[in-house]
Simulated assay, not measured.
Amino acid sequence: MKKTIFMLGIASAILAGCESDEKVENASQEDQISNVSARRSCASDEVLKEQMANDPQLAMKIAKIEAFTQSKLSENFQSRLVNGVIEIPVVVNVLYKTTAENISQAQIQSQIDILNKDFNATNSDFNNVPSAFSGVKANVGIRFVLDQVVRKSTNKTSWGTRDAMKKTAQGGLNPLSPTTKLNLWVCTIGGGILGYAQFPGGSSATDGVVIDSKYFGSTGTATYPYNLGRTATHEVGHWMNLRHIWGDATCGTDFCNDTPSHNTANYGAPAFPHYSTCSGNPIEMTMNYMDYVDDRAMYMFSTDQKSRMLAIFQAGGPRYSFAQ
C-alpha cells in the first residue's frame, strides 16, 4: 500500500509540473514565436503531458521509473563501458526542405563533439562553475559515437511536436534501433520550439530527441544565442530522465537534492549570484544545463543529476538495453 501511495505521489508531482509548465509556455508563446532568440523553449514536458493524456497508464509507468531511480541512486553503476565510459551510438535523422536545413556533416559532428565535452566535463567553460557549486559539479561519464546519418527531402515547412518527424508514414523517418541507439531528428520544428525529448518510459517507436536545425551544433545554421550545441545537451538530459531545474512549477522539484530550488526558468545570461525567493532564498544554479539560459550561460550537470542519468542504464532500468 505504501509503495502504491508513493508512486501515486510521484505521478501527481509529475502531472502538476506538466500543468504548470504548460501555463508558463502558453503565456509566453507569442513572445517565443516573435523573438525566439530571447526565450529558450523546450517542449519535452508539454509532449509528456500529451502522451499521458493519450495513455492513462504512462503516468504510473513513469512513477515506477522514478521509484526505481530513487532506489538505485546509492548503488554502484554497472554497464557496458569503453575505457570506463558508457558509450551510446547516435543516429542523426535529417529532414530538410531547403539546402540550409540539409545540415552538413561538419555541423553534425560538431554536435556530437559538444555532447562528448558536456557529458564528460571537458567543455572549456566547465571551469566557470562558481565555487558555491564546485563541490557538486559532475563528470557524467557518457560518450556519444556517431553511428550513421540518414537524410530525407521533404515538402514540410515545419513539423510541430506531435512526433510526425519520427514516422515514415507521416513523411518523417522511423527511428533506427531505438532500444540500442539514440535517435536525433534534425528538422524545422516551428512555434518557437528549440527542441524536445521523450522521457524514459515512452514508446520505442517515438523514442529519441528532436532538435531544430537552427540550434544544432556550433557551425553552419547554428543561430545565436543557441549556437553552442547546448539545446541537444539539455534535451538529451531529458532523454536520460532529468527534469527542468525549476521542476516545471514555482519552486518545484527536479528530484535532485543538490540543485537549489528555482522560482521558475531563467533566460539570457543571469549575473551570479542570482537568488531564488523559494524557501531559504538559495542561489539558483542558473548555469545548469537543465535551465533555460542561453547556450553561453549553461555549462554544468550536478552530482545528483549524474546519478539519475546513470541509474536508468542499470539492470531493470528503462534504458538498460543500451548497456548490454
Rank of each mutant, 00 (worst) to 15 (best):
T4C: 00
T4P: 00
M7I: 15
M7H: 14
M7G: 09
L8W: 09
I10H: 03
I10R: 07
A13Y: 06
I14P: 05
L15P: 01
L15N: 10
E19L: 12
D21M: 08
N26V: 03
A27K: 14
S28R: 15
S37M: 09
C42G: 14
S44Y: 02
D45Y: 13
L48G: 09
Q51S: 15
A53Y: 10
D55W: 06
P56V: 14
I65D: 15
T69V: 08
T69N: 05
E75P: 00
R80Y: 11
N83V: 07
E87R: 11
V91H: 09
N93Y: 01
V94G: 13
L95W: 06
Y96C: 08
Y96Q: 04
A100C: 04
E101W: 03
A106I: 08
I108P: 05
Q111P: 08
L115M: 14
N116V: 06
F119S: 00
A121R: 14
D125W: 09
N128W: 13
V129Q: 04
P130A: 08
A132R: 09
S134T: 11
G135S: 15
I142K: 01
I142F: 01
D147T: 00
N155I: 04
W159Q: 03
R162V: 07
D163A: 15
A164F: 10
M165N: 12
M165A: 14
K167L: 13
Q170V: 08
G172A: 09
P178V: 06
P178W: 10
L182W: 04
L182A: 02
L184R: 06
G190A: 06
L194W: 10
F199G: 07
A205L: 12
S218I: 10
G220M: 07
P225C: 08
N227T: 04
T231W: 04
E235V: 05
G237I: 05
W239M: 00
M240V: 01
L242I: 10
C251K: 00
C251T: 01
T253C: 10
D254C: 12
N263S: 02
A265M: 06
A271H: 13
M285Q: 13
D291M: 12
D304P: 00
Q305A: 00
S307N: 13
M309W: 00
A311R: 02
A315H: 11
G316W: 11
G317T: 11
Q324N: 12
